[in-house]
Amino acid sequence: MTTDLKRSPNRRPLQMSQLGLHLLIAFLLLLSLVPTVIMINLSFKNGLQYRWERWTLSLPLRGSNYLSAWDVIDAYMINTVLVAVVGLAGVLILSLIGGYVFARMRFPLREPLYYAIIALLMVPWVLSFIPAYMLYNNLGLLNTRWALIIPNVAGGPIFGIFLMRAFITGIPEELYESARCDGAGAWSLIWRITFPLSLPGLATLSVLNFVAEWNSFLWPLVTISDMSKQVISVGLFRLSRTTNDSVDFGSGGPLFAGYVLASIPLVILFIVLGKFYVEGLVESGIKM
């Protein structure tokens, strides 16, 4: 990059610097994608190919690895989807209600109550992790799916209300005025006006929440001991540990096919919700 790109009357240095830029970006992206490419390549290999030609493409591709992988991780995938979707439903409902109340209703102590919620964003999980485990232990919720659903339903609306309040504040007041004139109560203002108009905000929140649930690892690792209720992250972790030398799974290919399968829900979500996916990722950074 030269410092005086724009003043240069000759366009060639500009082209050259753009070419250099593209090469540099391509190099960095290539390095970033190496693990992903290796994962996909290894997922199609049989035991011998895995042993002797790990880093090259070997034909024929062994697609049956995916069937072997699915047989082992199907329960983990289904458990995770189940827990994530049930939790997400709760998060969306509570965030919509909370966002509406704080954006549109007028009542004493509104701001203190709002900040009492938002302040919780500042509490790092490290302070709550151990005592939360004991709380779920005392409530008899360990090793039940509730141990995975409740933390999300209770904690998800914290950021959800922050996000939805900002979003709902942007809805024009006239829409509410006319509905109120027709005698609509708070409940129908939420479901008939706010809900359809805040779908983009809810989509962002859904992505954010689902990705976080799909990635959650430490909490299910300690709270769920029964592997039939376990989620995908912990399931893959255990498989990577226990099956290294076993004949059926640990020959390599199927394990990597399992890694690819575990990525597919996120890929689908990204394809379906593109823009909201990116927003969800960025918001997740802000959320901490």
Partner: peptide, 21 residues
Amino acid sequence: QAYALLSPIFALLIVFVYYPP
């Protein structure tokens, strides 16, 4: 009405989010 709508949110927050830390 506002408090009624917020009550389930705060009930969950108090037990599962405020209490542990």
